[in-house]
C-alpha cells in the first residue's frame, strides 16, 4: 500500500487498534523511515494525546506521589511545611518554570551566568532603565510560542518565573504574570532551607506589565535550600510569611555548580 492509502489508518495505528493489512503496512513504512508516514503517525499520536487529556479530571490520592517516588528509589525530601505551603508547592510546580543553577550540566554556561549576574547587578545600580529592557525578555516569556505547563491552581494566569541561586552571588528571581502588589503591600521573597523556617530575602514590587526581577545579593547555601517562595506582605516586611505563597520554586537537590 502507498502512503496515501494508509493516511486514514494513522490514528488507529497510533492507538494500537489498526487491523491487518494496514497495521503491518504502516509498520513497514515506519521501519524504512518513510517520512510521510512518520509525520502522519506523529500527528496521530498528538491527537491521541489530546483526546487522552480530555478525560474528566480526577484526583489521585495524596499518597500516590510519595509511593511512586519511593518505588523509583527516589528519596522524598521532607517538606515540613503547613498544608497550605505544601499544597502551594504542588500547585506551582505544575505551572511555574523553575530552574536552579546547580542543576545545570554545562559548566561553561554556569560561569557565564555567574558573570552575567555580577554584571547585571552593577549595571542595575548604574541604570535603573535596565528593567525596561528586561520587559523584552518577559514579552518573549509570555509569547504564544512559549511553552507553558498546565497549572492546577485557582488563578487563571499564574505567575511564571525562574529562580537562580549562586553560592557566592546570591539569589535572582524573575517573574512574569505577577500583577503589582496592592497599595501598602509589597512582595517578599523567602529562601527556605530544608527542614527549616523560611528566611526573608528582601521586598520587591512588580512592573505594571506584571514582570518583576529581584536580587538577593550575598552568599547562599544552595545545597541546603529547599525552595524559594514569594508572598504578599505589608510594606514593612514580615519575619515569617503571613500569606499563601504566589510563587514556590523547588530547588533541585544534587550536583552543585562546578
Amino acid at each position: 500500500m502507498n502512503c496515501n492509502e494508509l493516511r486514514e489508518y494513522y490514528e488507529l495505528f497510533a492507538i494500537g487498534v489498526a487491523e491487518e493489512p494496514e497495521r503491518s503496512e504502516i509498520r513497514a513504512h515506519l521501519n524504512r523511515k518513510c517520512e510521510v508516514c512518520m509525520a502522519g503517525v506523529k500527528k496521530a499520536l498528538e491527537m491521541a494525546a489530546m483526546v487522552g487529556s480530555a478525560a474528566d479530571a480526577a484526583q489521585p490520592s495524596s499518597k500516590l506521589r510519595q509511593r511512586i517516588l519511593a518505588s523509583a528509589g527516589v528519596e522524598t525530601r521532607g517538606f515540613r511545611w503547613t498544608p497550605v505551603w505544601a499544597m502551594a508547592t504542588a500547585l506551582s510546580l505544575a505551572g511555574a518554570v523553575y530552574f536552579g543553577i546547580q542543576a545545570r550540566r554545562d559548566a561553561g554556561e554556569t560561569q557565564r551566568i555567574r558573570a552575567e549576574m555580577g554584571l547585571q547587578n552593577d549595571e542595575m545600580r548604574a541604570q535603573g532603565a535596565e528593567i525596561t529592557r528586561l520587559t523584552e525578555a518577559f514579552a518573549i516569556l509570555n509569547g504564544p510560542d512559549t511553552k507553558e505547563a498546565a497549572f492546577g491552581g485557582a488563578r487563571p494566569r499564574p505567575p511564571r518565573g525562574k529562580v537562580f541561586l549562586n553560592p557566592t552571588q546570591g539569589v535572582l528571581l524573575i517573574a512574569s504574570n505577577l500583577p503589582p502588589a496592592p497599595l501598602g503591600k509589597l512582595y517578599e521573597m523567602w529562601v527556605i532551607p530544608r527542614g527549616g523556617r523560611p528566611v526573608a530575602a528582601g521586598m520587591f514590587q512588580s512592573q505594571p506589565d506584571g514582570s518583576a526581577m529581584h536580587v538577593r545579593r550575598g552568599a547562599v547555601d544552595v545545597e541546603s535550600t529547599n525552595a524559594v517562595a514569594v508572598t504578599v506582605e505589608n510594606q514593612a516586611g514580615a519575619d515569617q510569611p503571613t500569606s499563601e505563597p504566589l510563587i514556590v520554586a523547588a530547588v533541585p537537590s544534587g550536583a552543585s555548580p562546578r
Partner: peptide
C-alpha cells in the same frame, strides 16, 4: 535526577 521525576509527576500526575 530524582527531582525531575517529582516534577514530572507534579506536572502530569493528575492528567
Amino acid at each position: 535526577d530524582p527531582q525531575a521525576l517529582a516534577e514530572l509527576y507534579d506536572r502530569f500526575g493528575r492528567l
